[in-house]
Design a protein around this nucleic acid. Sequence first.
DNA 1: CATTAGTTAATCAGTCTGCCTATTAATCAA
DNA 2: TTGATTAATAGGCAGACTGATTAACTAATG
Lengths: 390, 390
Amino acid sequence: MERLAGSSRLLRAMNESASLAYLFDRGPLTRGALRELTGLSKPTTSEVLRRLTDAGLAIVIGHTSGGPGPNAEIYAANPEAGYAVGVSVRETRLPSLALAVCDINGAVLARAERAADFARVEPEAAITAAVEELCTEAGTVPDRIRHVQLGVPGSYDPTSGVIRHIDVPGWNRPGLVDRLADRLGVPVAVENDVNLAAVAERAHGVARDVDGFALVWFSFGLGLAIDLGGQLLRGARGGAGEIGYVPVGLRGGGPGTDLHDLVGGQAVQALAAAHGLRTAGAADAVAAAVASGADEFLSALADRIAVGIAAVAAVLDPPLVVLAGDVAQAGGDALRDAVVAALRATTPLDTPIAVTGVTDDAVLLGALDCGVRAVRETLVGTLRDAIPPS
Amino acid sequence: MERLAGSSRLLRAMNESASLAYLFDRGPLTRGALRELTGLSKPTTSEVLRRLTDAGLAIVIGHTSGGPGPNAEIYAANPEAGYAVGVSVRETRLPSLALAVCDINGAVLARAERAADFARVEPEAAITAAVEELCTEAGTVPDRIRHVQLGVPGSYDPTSGVIRHIDVPGWNRPGLVDRLADRLGVPVAVENDVNLAAVAERAHGVARDVDGFALVWFSFGLGLAIDLGGQLLRGARGGAGEIGYVPVGLRGGGPGTDLHDLVGGQAVQALAAAHGLRTAGAADAVAAAVASGADEFLSALADRIAVGIAAVAAVLDPPLVVLAGDVAQAGGDALRDAVVAALRATTPLDTPIAVTGVTDDAVLLGALDCGVRAVRETLVGTLRDAIPPS
DNA sequence: CATTAGTTAATCAGTCTGCCTATTAATCAA
DNA sequence: TTGATTAATAGGCAGACTGATTAACTAATG
């Protein structure tokens, strides 16, 4: 229930932040267009835009032409109002970083990849150095950055400030995030990498116009991200989506088989080997299977995947399930069709299933998207907080 | 992102609705207390309360005393501002109804139970008659009712307006809800009964102060409700929580065992019988087992339940899992302890588990709670909509 | 008499309506 | 083809209006 109360100052703050929000997500607008969206009068719209430009939050980027009458000025959010950095921390054979800066409108200014030996260089130093290098490449200064979004293969517990379930050396130390924020002089947020992939899927992939979806990530590890109307579900301790722990089958007492044993990277490779496919990794195995038409292996794999999806679908009933990660991407539509068939054969659930539509680095794109959104929130909040502390 | 923009009228509407909202959920307040909560000035607070009382939404219910100075008037939401009806439609051996009316503050005015033979009387007629009778019992008129909340053992698809997965005769007909609303002349909302039990659990049970929780319902059927910060998760087609479809074990192709086959009412009874307990129903069997200390049966049952909870916990990581429904209630703490042990033995998840704290009819209480909230929203919205259509 | 509840009057902030001017494209006459 | 005329639109300005605030004031209570 809305509980906002106040005086005319609140009104101005609301009108300004609403206008800025429209500039952010409806793109460039004329005064007239903004007037229609906000329902404000001509003088007020003018005043709001004057103040936003004075504050460096909006700029005139052009003029209309063609129609009768004067050419209306076209306003847009000032891209230089703040930059966001996205960082993807990867745990492959060698730990590595992918990072990028973008402006408030989401345009990427610079991008880089780096190997990083976290056993020798501590994470704070490595990230700080990488960000500074990125800034010089982008031709900007670190001061302009308003938010750094990290994506890590683990879950972040905001109450304790610790990244858990992470295998990259040095990254599970308590206080790391605070120290990094201190060093960079910028707010730092941490998010699970699969969650960020889901953010990218909503922004650029197949989940663009969907109410919500579950993204299942098949790679070396196994992950799940849940998007409910654009909001991520993280769970009590950031542990939502630890789908690898879904039990498979009953057993008396002791620990038994779970989903990780069935469709984790190693399990997939083992299954492939059992079907006579010997390759370097799980993704390669699946790609080879698709190429050579090894249907038996694919349908065996699909059976296993269907178990996990059935559990997710029964609990959440998502409007869409997206298969992502290098293994799923290697499988493509062939794997998707096999999974659909397996699911239909076993349960009455008819949840639509799709393969990811993000071809670029999904985690990095998602981190940028989250970062930009955070910067926008900050800027809108700045206006809102013009309300005096009573 | 907030997009509200407007002029001084909006301000008044906001201040009034915020004040009313505070009266609703902080209970009776003096002018001074409301002033602190809203941050408004003395004259404005007075004006707002004057308008609310004029509109019949607030009343003076008393005066302070004891301190120096005049006695402050104590304001409260006018209980007569609107009534809500909750109806629980049950599918037992004989279909039956439980219903109650309460005022805007949640005080129950009248309550009734009724058998209803929906094979012979159509649902619209039966509900309408029951509501009218309830009104005379409560000494009020049906006009005063602003919302009717139904709880049904099935899922309601708001897009098609059809109640699905329901076994009570006549209730799966398309357009039923609209016809009922027409006949009663009041908005009618439908919700899954387990979801309503979760609402009651949050309002009156063990989930009062928790961020979110998953409520697993064990009765004749099997259900799951997911509460995320007080918001229910319903799924794409109202099918979230169809936990009975969670698969158990791998199988090649054909339909195999699912959770319903494991812990549905019949399955529990069969399991009890296998352990030498012959009773009329699942709940009785469990109660008998607890009374007689039949630990083997209980731990076998707990093993099965743990599979379901593990799946839910792995997907959602809820801060709490609540066991509810007559079977769980019969099991009580003994069953809870057995389930905790079974869960710890099989998975690394350490989600807290509790038995329901609602002893009264949870579905009916939840329906009343939902109904009251809907009426409050309507009233607050009335004030908000004082904003002219430009 | 000190303290508090609530009202009244004057003021201030912010938006709205209505009118005005300037600018552009289209149309029409020479 | 060119210049004048007209219609349509962008944006600014002045005065009215709404609603909240501050500050002073009245009245009630221990």
